[in-house]
Amino acid sequence: MNPEIIYNTYPGLAWDWRVAMDLFLGGAGVGSILFAVFVDEFFQGKYRRIRQTAAWMSPILVTLGLVFLLLKLGRPFHAFNTLINFNPHSPLWWGGIFQPLLVILGVMYARKLNNIDEDSTNHRTLGRILVPLSIIVGTYHGLLLAINVSRPLWNTGPTVVAAILGFITTGIAAVMLVHLIRMKLAGRLDDGDHFAKFIDDMKVVRNILVGAILLQLFTFFLWWLSLRFGVLTDRQALALANEHYGPMFWFLGIGMGLILPLLLGGIAILKGEEKDRRLQVVIIMVTSFLILFGGFFFRLAVVLAGQLSLPLNPLL
């Protein structure tokens, strides 16, 4: 028989939407710099503008994420303490070191892309340094939650994998959305040849996106399995999360952020890209927006649900 606890020790919510925003923006920033390096490496000489968009977005998004995190701190002006004290056991300490580094190197990379000689290997070396650095920062965003043994909902391997896949999907979506807006503002969407070629080459990116979404759905399934058939506290955490944040996670995060974009992507493929260019633009914009929208709400639901207090099980 389960004990009924009539006075718990729960001292309130510690992390709110600002932490979710940091995870979301930081993840999108990591994804966008990887996208920039990817285009630079594999489409040498092409798509200078989308590369620039992606490279500049990364430091901006990561900085914005850090601003939200600073706003959540009780004493933001003491944040420098992270840099002058040493605790490698703390993911937050690693984040405090590596995120500013990613911003600084990201700005340097973006500045180099603004004015490069295509044969230059100088910026590519920097790009190759940025790849492992961004993966470390992306993984940190998962570890920040996953290392907490006190939070069964977060304390799983799939938490980290979901964070890594999340930065791939939201990073690509953020770049596509912002770049399309940038092209529209510059009047280049009307340049038929340019855009047709862009859409054609972006098939690779679309395939990566579809692959990442499918993997993310599979990761969520594994996450659910590990909790649903886990120990008592895992099952309690899952039941509490579903009770309080189920609609936000399943409907906004998974439904609108992953499944709907996947269906829209399918429509785009079936309709044929060359036939209706305008439809392609609309689908790319809507899909990107949905991935970003769902990406935020998925993180928000996870951050809030993970903090729901479980009953202290009776002494054995």
């Binding site: 001292p11 009780g74 004493r75 703390s90 937050l92």
Partner: peptide
């Protein structure tokens, strides 16, 4: 202390 609440979590 910077008030990050990581300890509370």
């Amino acid at each position: 202390c910077i008030g990050c609440a990581a300890c509370r979590i």
